[in-house]
Amino acid sequence: MRLLALALATTFVAPAGLPGETAGEYAVKAAFLFHFAQFVEWPPGAFKDPASPLTYCTIGDDPFRGVLEESVQGKIVGSRTLQVQHLKEREQIAGCQILFIGAAEKKHLAEDLSVAVGHAVLTVGETENFAQDGGVIGFVVENDKVRFEINVDTAGKAKLRLSSRLLLLAKTVIGNQK
């Protein structure tokens, strides 16, 4: 039991030197972002070719401040390398597979989502009701734990298939699960 507690504790303290909880929160989210890729399938046209990398994008202010790069650095998901782009223009969203919309981007959220709709982009946000509002996965921090809500309709519209296992882990699943 002690061990368990200790293990849990270290999970949270994991990245060394990260200041406060906030830093830790984004580390976790970054990790989640990486792992989402493992549980998601993009349609064939999402990539130019089989060798093209899987792109993570942030838009607007980058809350991760390089942690995202750290968490995807050198890793491979489904034989694709991973890269991170920090978009300044909304129009670039089409080139991303995973888009993270930070809380700072709340004002522009609808526009972002509308751009993403026509493309197979996994939109992940942290704002409240993100998933209800048309995002696919929305982070929810609950009891100091990072949870997420998944909108399967949005996912369907984006032609993304999400693993049931992921769905199982979601705090909430919005939409119809077939």
Binding site: F32, F39, K145, F148, R165, L166
Partner: peptide, 9 residues
């Protein structure tokens, strides 16, 4: 696995 990934004990 997913639970492990997403730390969902």
């Amino acid at each position: 696995a997913a639970s492990l990934t997403f730390d969902d004990a």
